[in-house]
């Protein structure tokens, strides 16, 4: 049929014909697989987990080499301007010390107030720590590979954060590694609030490394440049009070912000328990269409 003519050999003609039929069968299988993956992304989780286990150690090892090499370069660079850096750091330390005293006072006051209110909070338990070793740099989706998996107790739907801020949540888990849906992915929506005013906002990724912030209430644009957005804990997946992003510009009623934890720059990522596990259990089942 379609493939190039092969002359008079009946055997060669049949070979090409069957290859053509097999290709059409392959196309049909591909379409079915794709339809299944879109309809329920959870379906092939064992296969995807296995693939992660095979590839992630390689990525991790290469990452290690990369980090060592760039560490040598930046380590040498740090000596270059040491005197000025030293002075600058001293100045910052003194400033921080003042802020620390204020923060301690606030913390104490907060504790007393909470005790008075009999507030019970779920403590955030660290499940595992890992490194972000790779990412989906070939596709419009924003995934990262985390070097911690089911062996370390990681499960699908756990929040991931770094010291600087929120990174995302797990969507595929292998034995040794897991795949993280980054905050900047379009399908990742984080209930959050503005640190300055406490106003509730929705934070959604844009797919290019930034996030879009939408206020929940209609009205004047509440954002200013430099505003910090933190998680609100609504929905029960992400723990509250984790910094997410900093506003860089306003866009109509919304704002564009940059995540505070740059997945390329963080050295360690922390996997935590879902904030309220009982709240996420039904949610993840309903939410399967949106990984």
């Amino acid at each position: 049929m379609a493939p190039p003519r092969t002359g008079w050999s009946r055997r060669a003609q049949y070979g090409l014909f069957f290859s053509f039929i097999a290709a059409i069968a392959g196309l049909a299988i591909g379409l079915i697989l794709l339809a299944l993956s879109i309809a329920s992304p959870e379906r092939f989780k064992d296969l995807k987990g296995m693939a992660l286990d095979v590839t992630a150690p390689v990525t991790g090892a290469l990452r290690q080499i990369n980090t060592t090499a760039s560490g040598l370069a930046s380590g040498a660079g740090s000596y270059w301007d040491a005197a000025n850096q030293n002075a600058e750091l001293r100045r910052q330390r003194d400033q921080m010390r003042e802020q620390l005293v204020t923060a301690r006072a606030i913390l104490q006051e907060n504790r007393q107030l909470k005790a008075a209110l009999q507030l019970r909070e779920q403590t955030s338990d660290v499940v595992a720590t890992g490194r972000l070793v790779g990412s989906s740099f070939e596709s419009p989706r924003r995934f990262a590979i985390l070097s911690a998996g089911a062996r370390d107790g990681v499960k699908v739907g756990m929040p991931i954060r770094a010291a600087r801020g929120l990174i995302g949540r797990t969507i595929d888990v292998g034995t040794l590694a897991s795949r993280v849906l980054l905050v900047s992915d379009r399908a990742n929506i984080v209930p959050s609030r503005l640190l300055r005013t406490g106003q509730a906002v929705i934070c959604q990724g844009r797919g290019d490394g930034t996030v879009e912030l939408k206020p929940l209430e209609v009205g004047r644009n509440p954002f200013h440049r430099g505003d910090i957005v933190i998680t609100s804990g609504t929905g029960g997946l992400y723990p509250p009070l984790v910094p997410i992003a900093r506003v860089i510009r306003l866009d109509g009623d919304n704002a564009i912000a940059v995540p505070l934890a740059d997945p390329g720059g963080v050295s360690f990522a922390i996997v935590e328990q879902p904030y309220e596990p009982e709240a996420t259990a039904p949610l993840t089942e309903n939410d399967e269409g949106l990984p």
Partner: peptide, 20 residues
């Protein structure tokens, strides 16, 4: 698809279609 973490079936479909 498995290496790149694409939804399974995406490359299967497009690659086979391109060959045809």
């Amino acid at each position: 698809d498995l290496f790149a973490g694409n939804p399974l079936g995406l490359s299967v479909t497009v690659w086979t279609f391109s060959m045809l």
